[in-house]
C-alpha cells in the first residue's frame, strides 16, 4: 500500500526537461559564437543602410560620424538635419543635401565645431595617456547611407578634414 502511493507521487514529478536542455545548449553555443566583440556597432534603420563591400579590414575605435538620409550624428548625438533639394540637371528628381544656411562654402559649420571639440578632447586624452598608441591620429569612422549623393559626403569629408580628421574609415557591411 505504502509502496504504491510513493510510485504515483514520483510519476507526477517527472517533467521531461532534458530535451529542452539540449535545445538550449545548442542555442547557447550558437549565440556565443555570434557574440559581438568589436566596439563598433551600427543600428540599422530605414534611413541608415550601409553599403556592402568585399573589404576585410576590421573596424577600430575612433570618432564615429554618421550620415543618414535625414541627419548627421557625431558619436550618436545629432548635429544637424539634412534636406532635399531639386536636382538641377535632372528636373523632377530630388537630391539629399546639407541646408544652405548651415554651411559656409563647403564647410558645415555646426559639424566643424563639434568635430573640433572631439579632436581637442582626443588630443588631450592622448597627451594625458602619454603613450604612442593612444595619440591622436585623426582617425574617423564614417558611416553613410548607401543612397547618399557624393556631394553630401564631399562636404562632410571636407569639414572633417578641416577639423584635423584626415584618416577616413568608411564603415561597410562585409560580404561573406
Amino acid at each position: 500500500m505504502a509502496l504504491k502511493k510513493k510510485k504515483r507521487v514520483q510519476k507526477r514529478e517527472e517533467l521531461a526537461i532534458t530535451s529542452m536542455m539540449d535545445m538550449m545548449t545548442i542555442i547557447l553555443v550558437f549565440l556565443l559564437k555570434s557574440y559581438a566583440s568589436t566596439e563598433v556597432t551600427v543600428t540599422p534603420s530605414e534611413d541608415m543602410q550601409l553599403p556592402t563591400s568585399s573589404a576585410a579590414k576590421a573596424p577600430e575605435l575612433a570618432v564615429q560620424l554618421m550620415v543618414s538620409k535625414t541627419e548627421i550624428l557625431v558619436d550618436g548625438v545629432p548635429v544637424l538635419g539634412l534636406t532635399t533639394v531639386q536636382d538641377e540637371e535632372n528636373p523632377g528628381e530630388m537630391l539629399i543635401a546639407v541646408p544652405e544656411d548651415e554651411k559656409k562654402g563647403q564647410m558645415i559649420t555646426d559639424l566643424y565645431d563639434r568635430l573640433l571639440d572631439k579632436a581637442e578632447q582626443a588630443k588631450a586624452l592622448g597627451e594625458a595617456s602619454g603613450s604612442e598608441q593612444h595619440a591622436f591620429k585623426g582617425r574617423i569612422l564614417l558611416q553613410c547611407d548607401q543612397n547618399l549623393p557624393f556631394s553630401v559626403i564631399r562636404e562632410v569629408m571636407y569639414t572633417a578634414g578641416q577639423a584635423q580628421f584626415s584618416e577616413f574609415k568608411f564603415v561597410v557591411y562585409k560580404t561573406e
Partner: peptide, 17 residues
C-alpha cells in the same frame, strides 16, 4: 547573448585626405 549577438560583420575601407 541574443542582445549582444552580431549577425552582420562590419569592415572598414581606408582613405586619406
Amino acid at each position: 547573448l541574443l542582445m549582444s549577438a552580431q549577425f552582420v560583420t562590419l569592415a572598414v575601407i581606408d582613405s586619406t585626405l
